[in-house]
Amino acid sequence: MPELINANPTIYATSKNSLRVITADDENEDIEDMIDSREVFDLIRSISDPEHPLTLEELNVTQLEHVTVDDNNDSVVIEFTPTIPHCSMATLIGLCIRVRLLRSLPERFKVDINVRKGTHQSEQAVNKQLNDKERVAAALENAHLLEVVNQCLTTAYARGTIKRHQ
């Protein structure tokens, strides 16, 4: 097995952000539900980490508080926290989030994905790469990379419902 970048990361319990409860309003045909930060967080929380069989939420890479959504102005801003400041997986994780949202959000949204300030040594380079449309498109031309991204996204449907043995 190849050496892992971070072999023994801290694991966080996911229950404080447990599942979104379906309300009567949600089931009422006539009420319009806005897209909110919770909904977007639900989209990305259960993406798998490329290194561990754990979700981004369990590793505290994504947090509800770091997702900002303005439905009226078509804007989404995501900040994520790499597990360690020299994590070379940061771009890949960002790319997974980017692809997940490309596939899941209406096209009208402008999505910004950034490393949380001060949590990564090449913060700016990573940010630049993640928010450059052409570079993202070029990265996805790479069949191997796309395969890895798709692999990480296979668990995304769970929206926090993956519970490991207690």
């Binding site: 897209i35 899941s104 959000l105 209406p106 296979t154 449907y157």
Partner: peptide, 22 residues
């Protein structure tokens, strides 16, 4: 459907679309 006004529909649309992407 990704921009449906109901959240429950959007959720299903995301799952369906992601299934087709994969």
């Amino acid at each position: 459907a990704l921009d449906d006004k109901k959240r429950l529909v959007r959720k299903q649309a995301v799952d369906c679309r992601s299934k087709w992407f994969l």
